[in-house]
Design a protein around this nucleic acid. Structure first.
Length: 175
DNA sequence: CCCTGATTCGC
DNA sequence: GCGAATCAGG
């Protein structure tokens, strides 16, 4: 898989929106999260708008200014992502992305924000091994379910199982 | 153990 | 330039 223009743009977009490298990798398909991270660095857009610069390892100089909230209850699921990215003395380009991300989120509430390749199954098509992750607004025409294989232990595919519960971070013993 | 991003370095 | 391996951390 090579980095086409479109793929790079999608990468930039998703990264600026605060998605993790693995999530982005999943959506792009054909690449690992390492590939995504590597690309992000090569594009010099790590830090997502904040985290000024001097990235010396061994000591954390990084603080992401994004807050994620996710509520997943039963059939209707609502994702609320609030990305408060303050680009203090950051690049104007990065600032643009930040704004774009917010606008994007506001305009598109619950639609296909974070969905890999779904099979777009209707409720009746679900079976025991299909992912039952709801996509879109249940009151809307295009509402459907992910439908990817869910194994037979989880109601979701491996990808959505991870997204369903803890939002990628700030996770603590909940079971 | 699950995950996160960061860095290194052979290709 | 690319990304697996590795590192450092939550």
């Amino acid at each position: 898989m090579n980095w086409t223009d479109e793929r790079v743009e999608l990468l930039k977009k998703l990264w600026s929106e605060g998605l993790s490298a693995s999530q982005i990798a999943a959506q792009l398909g054909g690449v690992s999260r390492n590939a995504v991270i590597g690309k992000v660095h090569r594009l010099k857009l790590s830090g997502r708008g904040k985290t000024s610069s001097t990235q010396t390892r061994s000591k954390k100089v990084n603080t992401t200014g994004s807050v994620r909230g996710s509520v997943h209850s039963g059939a209707s699921q609502t994702m609320v992502r609030t990305s408060v990215t303050k680009s203090v003395g950051a690049t104007a380009l990065q600032a643009e992305y930040a704004v774009e991300a917010v606008a994007h989120t506001v305009l598109k509430p619950a639609a296909d924000v974070v969905v890999p390749i779904s099979r777009r199954l209707s409720l009746l098509q679900l079976s025991e091994r299909t992912c039952k992750w709801p996509v879109g607004d249940p009151l809307n025409e295009d509402f459907h379910f992910c439908g990817n294989d869910s194994g037979d232990t989880s109601p979701y595919c491996t990808y959505h199982s991870k997204l369903a519960f803890q939002p990628a971070s700030e996770r603590r013993r909940a079971r």
